[in-house]
Amino acid sequence: MSRARPGRDDSPDRLYTVTGGRTRAGSDAFDVVTLVVSESDPVPGMQSEHAAILRMCRFPTAVVEVAAGLGLPVSITRILLADLHDTGRISARHPRPSYRLPDHDILEQVLVGLRSL
């Protein structure tokens, strides 16, 4: 496994700056596989991470892909996404909720998809 991971050597101070010091406001709504779609283009003067997210999510992009693309931890990425969601700049397609066991229909769809790989 590679040791040179984005974000790994970033100091907590830098991460603190990216999020303006906030911790988790509203960020729990974003699952790692929530698909994010941009609803607007970046505008001049926008925080660079926000602009990068809007460029990245012109097609549906999972939260974890956004995190990898930004080189930031998932928890920080969730906060940045909440900012954009609050202002209507992105929409979020959350995974269909499953309870203890997944839905039978979904499992059938997964099997069909995997078998045709």
Binding site: R8, S11, P12, V33, A62, G113, L114
Partner: peptide, 26 residues
Amino acid sequence: GVAAKKATTVAFDFGRISLDARNVLY
């Protein structure tokens, strides 16, 4: 004093499979 806290950092990797028009498996 957040910088003073001991953090747990875990790295993980991921891939993706588009199963059909709507379902995407990570």
